[in-house]
Design a binder for these strands. Sequence first.
DNA 1: ATTATAATTAGGGAATTCCCTAACGCCCTA
DNA 2: TAGGGCGTTAGGGAATTCCCTAATTATAAT
Lengths: 205, 205
Amino acid sequence: MAGTEQVVYVVDDDASARESLCWLLDTEGIATRAFDSADSFLRAWSGDWSGCIMVDIRMPGKSGLQLQEELNGLQNRMPVIVLTGHADVPIAIRAMKLGALDFLEKPYSDHELLDSIRAALELGLEIDRAELEKSRYAVALDALTEREREVMCLVVEGKTNKGIAAQLGISEKTVEVHRSRVMEKTAARSLSELVRMCLILKDQL
Amino acid sequence: MAGTEQVVYVVDDDASARESLCWLLDTEGIATRAFDSADSFLRAWSGDWSGCIMVDIRMPGKSGLQLQEELNGLQNRMPVIVLTGHADVPIAIRAMKLGALDFLEKPYSDHELLDSIRAALELGLEIDRAELEKSRYAVALDALTEREREVMCLVVEGKTNKGIAAQLGISEKTVEVHRSRVMEKTAARSLSELVRMCLILKDQL
DNA sequence: ATTATAATTAGGGAATTCCCTAACGCCCTA
DNA sequence: TAGGGCGTTAGGGAATTCCCTAATTATAAT
């Protein structure tokens, strides 16, 4: 996860391609980890990895595109760069529509490869930062009881304590208690911070 | 802008291709407007158009990719679908990186074309909705004086009136006045709505 | 059965916000 | 020179929020 070292994950069935790529990245001081198939990568894959993924399209077993599809279903956050020797337009388009950050045809120059990887790692950092913030908030929200969450939502919608009490059929005093618990548990130091928190997590609330 | 009818803008130098495409869309009840070059489209282009853009890559004068680049610089909000007869992978990748929603090679089936266009129009609607909201907020914020905007930002940061007064070196009463003017001018019915407004516009504040 | 957690209500007081009216000085424009 | 918009300050009162303590009930866990 964020804070962990970034790694370039290389998925390619061609050993020489893997090795030359890893060697290039090593000399640039970039950590690498290589896999000879989509499945071996998926078995090792963990949601808290940080970095980017370089994947070849043509591989025995699962193709690079299939790997992309599976990763998309796994909430993978690492940018994917697709590498290929023989590509046609439909495959390239599919790879891009599956969210590939870049698509490089062999032979590619070290320069464009490194440019692409650096961009991917930088993007990965940003994603990690956003994800870290999100998970912090999610943990905080997880500690809330149902009632507290309910009250929080109404507070964030701009309702007043009195209004919330009326809507929930409970006393205003009770609302006050829940509200203060919400602020305490979420560590939000102001209402605006709470609103921000809820907006960021609104899709998974 | 939003509320206006959606139109599919067809940019292609080939008259027969334009006509067949427009005819197909007409029979589907989709409004079209055709241009024979990127330049003629750009001259007519207006920021408040709604719909999507179908653009051929190979054209005399500006290419489809150049058109995409210019549109990106113009804050174009309409999704772009690229059509082409003879594409190679690098061009396809460039088009996708320039933000094309889809990339279709001729000959394409009416079915995939219509699917793509319907997706583009739907996406366009969502973008329009978001843009409408944004512009409403922007207008409201534009009506604020400097001081009011200043106070608003501090309010949104969660500062209390007393804190704001201290920070700005003015009286708490004055802060109250600015604050209420902010709520009045922005038509925000609650603090949380104001926070939401500022978050949506934070990049252009 | 005892403990723990959650939800509820209550009282009181300090701090804050909200809304009203009222006023003064400044700058710019008609 | 007479407005009009802007920033400023002020007083007062109602409403609200915030923070403290305290107690009751229900449900779940040990």
